Simulated assay, not measured.
Amino acid sequence: MDQQVKKRQRSCIGCGATLEKGRLLRVVRDGEGRVAFDGSGRVPGRGAYLCSGACLTQARKSRKLERALRCKVTEEDYDRIQRDIEQAESAGKNEE
């Protein structure tokens, strides 16, 4: 009898949508407290998941990213993460 493996589900902190882990974008706070976009989804540390750059903007306004990562996220961090997500999204569109 074949057993189906369930895909891991995660929720977007911006809009609340629940999707498979691989379909969401991950932002991580590493052991030294640095916040960055995690394109691989495998960097060790506390992570938060987003659907898109638009959800990052929404999470930025309501400070949901700071609560999810349990740390202060600076404006420079938000700007860098936004650029990295835009690059990842445009690279994904080019592959399709």
Rank of each mutant, 00 (worst) to 15 (best):
G92E: 07
L19I: 13
R29W: 07
I13L: 14
A59E: 02
V35N: 04
A68K: 05
Q87F: 03
Y78S: 13
T18K: 13
T18I: 15
K7M: 05
V35G: 05
N94V: 11
E96C: 07
Q3D: 04
K64H: 13
E76N: 10
R29Y: 06
Q9W: 05
A88V: 11
G47C: 00
Q3G: 09
V5A: 12
E66S: 14
L25R: 14
R8E: 14
A17I: 15
C51F: 07
R67N: 07
L69K: 12
G33A: 08
L56N: 10
A36R: 10
L65P: 04
A36L: 06
I85G: 06
E75C: 01
R63W: 02
F37W: 03
L56K: 10
K72Q: 08
K6R: 09
R34N: 12
D79A: 15
D79K: 14
Q9G: 06
T57D: 12
I13D: 14
E75N: 09
R46G: 08
T18F: 04
D2P: 02
A36C: 03
K72A: 10
P44D: 09
G47L: 02
A88D: 09
G22Q: 12
R80P: 00
Q9Y: 07
E76F: 03
Q9H: 04
N94C: 01
S40C: 03
G14P: 09
A91W: 00
R23T: 15
Q3K: 05
K72P: 00
